[in-house]
């Protein structure tokens, strides 16, 4: 064991790891927000509630249907995504011609409804969700005979899985034909529609995909944090700050900002724990002062 500025290395790297995990959730959620905002021009306040719903769907699949973690990892995002498609078709689609603020208000109301229903049904104390047996245990990482840190397998998996999903999303949007339609529709939906692309369908599917990402993050989070109806409300506001810091113009920017801020939060927990809850907001203030459009944003 060695120390960094008087902090023992396992504590430092443990917090950094936790920070990186938080960061991967910020990255997935802000990515979904950015994709949805790009095409629909609404800020999806429901995102946090749907992240929570993803965790709950995984819990329900396990406890009511006996379906385990690995199936839930695929099924829960699909269920949340389909739910999102229904929301978009039935409610959100009615607002596209109005001021964008109404989209925020509508999705805020939806978030209250979803959160309230789960809180009624399951209380606020949180439900346990076990780590899948394949990923139980952990690795001792050491250089020579100096132990550096203990890496729980599941946490390593969360970071790898989120990174893969983030970069897959980036690849699809930036490098494929489908993604080019999406980017074109973000720039000018009317023109893309004129070229024969079914833009309303694309909008619906984009929303479904964006919230499916939130559901996926929820399943990943379920074994780490307990499954709690309030988990979405707490994280979504931080994610908003992440989005303001990164700017929503760039997919890669959203991913990097998410991971980076998670790390910063982890570091703050080691060196100045009192500020760990507010550090992201403080960074937001600094970014607004220096570069109002956000680190990766294009100025409006």
């Amino acid at each position: 064991m060695f120390t960094v500025f008087g902090v023992p290395s396992p504590a430092l790297f443990g917090q950094l790891l936790l920070g990186l995990i938080n960061g991967s959730f910020y990255a997935i959620l802000s990515l979904g927000l950015a994709v949805i905002f790009g095409l629909l021009n609404i800020i999806n306040f429901t995102h946090g509630a749907l992240y929570m719903m993803g965790a709950f769907v995984a819990w329900m699949l396990l406890n009511y249907a006996g379906i385990g973690y690995w199936w839930a990892l695929g099924l829960a995002p699909i269920i949340v995504g389909v739910f999102g498609v229904v929301l978009e078709k039935v409610l959100i689609a009615r607002l596209y011609k109005l001021d964008h603020l109404y989209g925020l208000l509508l999705t805020f109301g939806l978030a209250l409804i979803i959160q309230g229903i789960f809180r009624n049904q399951y209380g606020v104390s949180g439900l346990p969700y076990a780590i899948p047996p394949e990923l139980a245990g952990g690795q001792r990482i050491a250089i020579g005979s100096t132990p550096i840190m203990f890496l729980p397998n599941y946490r390593g998996w969360v970071i790898v899985a989120s990174a893969v999903v983030c970069f897959a999303t980036w690849f699809v949007i930036e490098k494929t034909k489908l993604g080019s339609y999406l980017r074109a529709a973000t720039e000018n939906p009317t023109l893309v529609q004129a070229f024969g692309v079914n833009v309303p369908l694309m909008i619906t599917l984009t929303y479904g995909f964006g919230v499916a990402l939130a559901g996926f993050a929820g399943v990943l989070a379920a074994p780490i944090y307990s499954v709690n109806p309030n988990m979405g409300g707490d994280i979504i506001i931080v994610v908003f700050a992440v989005v303001v810091i990164g700017g929503m113009g760039s997919i890669l920017g959203a991913i990097l900002t998410g991971f980076g801020l998670g790390l910063v939060e982890g570091l703050t927990k080691v060196f100045y724990p009192e500020a760990s809850a507010t550090v992201i907001f403080v960074i937001m203030v600094l970014v607004l002062l220096v570069k109002p459009a956000g680190l990766f944003g294009r100025s409006a």
Partner: peptide, 16 residues
């Protein structure tokens, strides 16, 4: 907690 749900519904109805 149903109060939250009802508030949410009022929100949605008002906006729509």
């Amino acid at each position: 907690a149903w109060v939250t749900v009802i508030q949410g519904i009022v929100f949605v109805v008002c906006v729509l």
